[in-house]
Write a protein that binds this DNA or RNA. Structure first.
Lengths: 140, 140
DNA sequence: AAAAATTGTAAGGTAAACCTAACACAATGT
DNA sequence: ACATTGTGTTAGGTTTACCTTACAATTTTT
């Protein structure tokens, strides 16, 4: 009823967002495979998302986001993206570890911290020399 | 049975760790108040921790950590501390927001990322001028 | 010592996410 | 067109963590 999504539902909607953005015709079973859960779990989750009016879905057809769903998903993905970029470009963590951590942390991190991370990433990409000095220092 | 603690149990053990470290005689009801949950929930959680041999506990007496419990708690708290320091000293987030975020994220962040954050914090504390340059830049 | 307050536990419930098994329905291949 | 494969749903279970209510046990206060 409340408009806050659980971590689980955020994962579903985020995956739907990324897939449909890619032009993929995403069905329930595809989602089950991508998320590594059973078709039954997907079925349950999708009906929750339908009842929250975040997606449109009819059996055997492709899942689509409503306008509200798209907005919600974009917020989640934005968080994911900022975290991943920060982990990779600032903390120099490899891509897959950055993604995995972002996936979990995106559900909990505050807007404020994300905002700082974003500024920080921008700054660091601009000033590579400082980053190099940091790496040199940290390897001592 | 497995030796991995859920986020919830990590919170319990972390709170016990911090309180007892402070010399506090922590009873179940105190824990309930600190964590904002019912005494019944605490009672359940404590018996799980007892059966995992992480704490010692007899009704109406103070809770203590076993050696294994202390080690486990220290690991959790270390994560919390590294995150909080990073948020405060590098990202310039205020203390309470840093703590709140650390509390949630500590259960999910990888060792590797924590390690980078720790190095980063050390570096930044040392080189305040760079931080100042960053702040100037980010306020544009 | 008796009354009052605090503490702990048991019973029974809710909610979220997951599962398997079984079955219905749809799409595809030959 | 019919069999096979793939997809979706239902029903019934599990787990984790929480809750309230009610009661039992222990302290503390008077």
């Amino acid at each position: 009823m409340a408009n806050t999504l659980s971590s689980g539902l955020e994962d579903y909607i985020e995956t739907i967002y990324l897939s449909t953005k890619n032009g993929e015709m995403l069905k329930g079973a595809d989602l089950a495979r991508k998320l590594g859960v059973s078709r039954a779990s997907v079925s349950e989750a999708l009906s929750k998302l339908v009842s929250k009016k975040l997606i449109k879905y009819n059996s055997y057809e492709a899942i689509t986001l409503t306008k509200a769903g798209d907005e919600e998903a974009q917020k989640v993905y934005e968080k994911h993206y900022v975290l991943k970029e920060f982990f990779e470009k600032v903390l120099d963590v490899d891509s897959s570890e950055a993604s995995e951590n972002a996936c979990k942390i995106e559900h909990f991190v505050s807007k404020n911290i994300l905002c700082s991370m974003q500024k920080f990433t921008k700054f660091f990409v601009k000033h590579k020399k400082i980053l190099e000095a940091y790496i040199e220092e940290s390897e001592k």
